[in-house]
Amino acid sequence: MITPEQIQATMARYIQLVDACDIDGIVALYAEDARVEDPIGTPPHVGRAAVEHFYREGLGRAQARARQTGPVSASHAGSGAVPFCVDLQMDGRACSIQVIDVMEFDEQGLIRSMKAYWGQANLVAREDA
């Protein structure tokens, strides 16, 4: 089973890859049968191909940057959560979103489920763009 330290490292790496807009690197962290719900409550993207499409069409076009805003909380049961902020362009405007991602990992240490907790209340316009 994946250790809490491995979860912490993988989730921190995920945010680094989001910051770099490294879609190939992000997708490589996911299991073949992964499920992504971003934000929670929207239809899930199921399977690595669907996850890749989601990141390429969203993150890849949004000029996103990301930074971790708190520690990764990891369990001995193969799950973790991390708060972070994503700065991006949405509808031509500079915005920031405060997000908490919750991930579950498989036995190989790949992400099998990611749920992003954020909504309209976590989205703010930025004037620095």
Score class of each variant (00 low, 15 high):
70 G>A: 11
110 L>E: 10
98 Q>S: 13
26 I>S: 05
14 Y>P: 05
98 Q>H: 10
88 L>G: 00
112 R>Y: 10
78 G>K: 00
118 W>K: 09
13 R>N: 15
104 E>R: 11
109 G>P: 09
68 Q>M: 14
30 Y>D: 01
66 A>F: 06
43 P>A: 13
106 D>C: 07
115 K>C: 10
112 R>E: 01
129 A>Q: 06
99 V>P: 00
20 A>K: 12
93 R>P: 00
64 A>L: 03
28 A>N: 14
45 H>M: 14
72 V>W: 04
71 P>W: 00
88 L>M: 13
128 D>E: 09
12 A>V: 09
127 E>A: 14
50 A>G: 02
49 A>K: 09
7 I>S: 01
31 A>S: 15
14 Y>F: 12
92 G>T: 02
37 E>D: 06
29 L>Y: 05
16 Q>I: 08
11 M>C: 11
127 E>F: 04
108 Q>T: 13
30 Y>W: 15
71 P>R: 08
97 I>P: 01
22 D>F: 10
111 I>L: 12
103 M>D: 13
22 D>I: 08
85 C>Q: 09
57 E>W: 00
57 E>A: 08
58 G>H: 04
97 I>L: 09
109 G>N: 05
112 R>Q: 11
126 R>I: 00
61 R>Q: 10
63 Q>Y: 04
118 W>A: 01
13 R>V: 03
62 A>E: 05
116 A>G: 15
51 V>P: 01
98 Q>E: 14
60 G>S: 06
1 M>L: 07
90 M>E: 14
47 G>I: 11
14 Y>K: 15
66 A>P: 04
102 V>I: 12
87 D>V: 02
95 C>S: 05
38 D>N: 15
51 V>D: 07
77 A>H: 11
78 G>I: 01
1 M>C: 07
50 A>W: 08
34 A>L: 07
30 Y>H: 13
105 F>Q: 03
125 A>V: 05
93 R>E: 02
10 T>Q: 08
94 A>P: 00
21 C>S: 15
24 D>H: 09
105 F>N: 02
92 G>L: 01
69 T>R: 09
77 A>M: 08
64 A>K: 00
110 L>V: 10
17 L>V: 06
101 D>K: 14
82 V>H: 04
22 D>M: 10
18 V>W: 14
28 A>M: 14
98 Q>Y: 02
70 G>Y: 12
116 A>R: 07
29 L>I: 12
81 A>C: 14
35 R>K: 15
79 S>L: 04
28 A>S: 15
25 G>T: 04
43 P>H: 12
64 A>P: 01
18 V>S: 07
62 A>Q: 06
27 V>C: 07
78 G>D: 01
93 R>G: 00
74 A>E: 00
40 I>Y: 10
35 R>Y: 10
